[in-house]
């Protein structure tokens, strides 16, 4: 790791408390360009809370979040998206009544602006359509463009979410368990996809599938009870006694 590389995402001493529960306890981590940083931890460790804070749906009690060097701690979720923060959700989050193409077109529109344009027909907008087709192509969903999101399979919905996220031209992607519910084949495909993707877009990955994590990650942070108990390259994490005691040893899906 060279000092010259400026982190895309940097989290400094983030803390969040819900009553007696310390959901985030002095969490610091960085995501560097071209890298995939994986965040693992047992259920209830505070991974989702951390993601909510990064994406701006929850305000931290203390600490800062920097996106491309700019302090975004107090910016709205929408502003962060415009600054390059893309994300996917644990549960599919799509406009189910709309076709795949329309879903992506709205994302392109969000990126290009103009949601307060009242007259020009949006569905015939060649610029939006072309950008949407390109994003669908990237995830291999171009043949399913006219299918309504509710009629897509679970795996295809995941792909569609990725198409929407990519249409936003993000500087970084925060992925919340993208492998969940995909099955072995889908997981393998998704892993290959992310392996390719991380070179162009750095990724913060929250994932339970340890095979995928250890294959993809350049760096792993282990979150337990809101605290990062270990952080480093995969080999270090695999060998860490603290991690094994706290997490890997007690988990059935340990690598």
């Amino acid at each position: 790791m060279t000092d010259a590389m400026e982190p895309i995402l940097q989290i400094n001493h983030l803390s969040k408390r819900f009553g007696a529960v310390q959901a985030s306890d002095d969490v610091s981590l960085t995501v560097l360009p071209g890298r995939l940083h994986a965040l693992i931890g047992p259920n209830g460790a505070g991974k989702s809370t951390l993601i909510s804070q990064i994406s701006g749906f929850l305000m931290p009690d203390a600490g800062q979040i920097f996106l491309k060097g700019r302090d975004v701690t107090h910016l709205s979720a929408e502003r962060r998206v415009h600054m390059g923060l893309g994300r996917s959700f644990q549960v599919s989050n799509l406009l189910l009544e709309w076709s795949a193409r329309r879903n992506v077109m709205l994302a392109v529109q969000a990126r290009r602006g103009g949601s307060f344009r009242f007259f020009k027909n949006v569905w015939k907008d060649a610029e939006l359509r072309a950008a949407a087709e390109a994003a669908l192509q990237k995830v291999g969903l171009q043949d399913r463009a006219d299918i309504r999101a509710m009629e897509l399979s679970h795996g295809e919905r995941r792909q569609l979410e990725f198409a929407c996220a990519l249409a936003l031209e993000p500087a970084i992607l925060v992925l919340d368990e993208p492998m969940a519910g995909l099955g072995p084949e889908g997981t393998a495909e998704m892993t290959a996809f992310l392996e390719e993707l991380k070179h162009s877009i750095p990724i913060l990955l929250v994932e339970h599938d340890m095979d995928a994590v250890f294959r993809l990650a350049d760096e792993i942070s282990v979150l337990v009870y809101g605290r990062i108990i270990a952080s480093g390259p995969p080999e270090t994490i695999r060998q860490s006694v603290a991690v094994q005691e706290a997490y890997l040893g007690s988990s059935s899906d340990a690598a």
Partner: peptide, 28 residues
Amino acid sequence: WRFINARFGAALQGARMNALRLSSIGIA
């Protein structure tokens, strides 16, 4: 008819169907 089929209408219908989706692509 124009409003609904313009970018504004797309955003509005998106807000009805899934406000979280709209936020997560950067439209408040």
